[in-house]
Design a protein around this nucleic acid. Structure first.
Lengths: 142, 142
DNA sequence: TCAAAGGGTCACATTGATGTGAAGGTCAAG
DNA sequence: CTTGACCTTCACATCAATGTGACCCTTTGA
């Protein structure tokens, strides 16, 4: 597919798709006429990149993580990682875990807050008007 | 305490403490001489702010979340939130949950990758040299 | 009393992720 | 053959979070 379709399907401006490529996060092929050519897998890939970017990881780090994030088949890892790569991954694993903890704490605090607020509100009105705006957060599924 | 001590205790440059104040995230008192005066609670507060910033939340959003993140005592919430505030919080709750999911997926993928790599490595050498660099990640505690 | 350490404001620089527009090539449809 | 939609590169602009330095004041200790 060409850049426009990928942009539509991922909700990502073309500009950014080119930027991600410039940063080495994606490496599309080229049609004879010079147009970028993306295969199907880039949809998920781009969504994952955006998710990580939103979560505060810089492109530089995401680039290092990407090889791990695509060993879908438990196959042999093509590029056998160097010890430095492994060390980097371990550091990032730790940092990501910290971020998760921080976000989880905040999520739970917000959820508690909303829950408490909701309780202390007049329950009748809530029952009448609230069912459409009910927050759904699971403490379980993480 | 003054800004220098807070900076030391949180590992945060003074410049940024002033910046967070400028953004309304913290509101220190002032000594008679004009120096900023922080109470003990700001240590945790600043750490939390930094954690959220690292996790990709902009100061604008953090500012809105802070009221929830400090209802330590299940007390009455001083400023009873407006419906708009609640709606904002619910949206943010959702976005934070998405980030968590994204990070958790990545964390697990990296952990798997490391685990697999470690297994496929010559186990003898690993047993000999690896015990000091063992990655510790818990899928449980989240 | 003087120096050093720390505090204050102001302001400009930088970096990473983006927005936006100019100038031009490709291609399908009318 | 022309128009419009899509693509290309290049380049400058923006925004938030930071770095950094200038310049001056306050406190403390030798």
């Amino acid at each position: 597919m060409r850049i426009g379709e990928l942009a539509d399907r991922t909700g990502t401006p073309r500009r950014l798709l080119r930027y991600y490529e410039e940063q080495g996060l994606i490496v599309p092929g080229r049609s004879p006429n010079g147009y970028r050519d993306y295969h199907e897998g880039y949809v998920d890939r781009v969504l994952q990149i955006r998710g990580l970017l939103d979560s505060g990881l810089p492109t530089r780090v995401i680039k290092q993580l990407l090889p791990c994030l695509h060993s879908k088949p438990r196959a042999i890892h093509i590029t056998d990682p160097t010890p430095e790569t492994i060390a980097t991954l371990e550091r990032e694993l730790e940092r990501i875990s910290e971020r998760i903890q921080c976000l989880v704490r905040s999520r739970d605090a917000i959820a508690d807050y909303l829950e408490t607020t909701r309780r202390s509100q007049q329950p009748a009105a809530v029952a009448a008007a609230g069912s459409g705006a009910t927050a759904r957060y699971e403490t379980a599924g993480v």
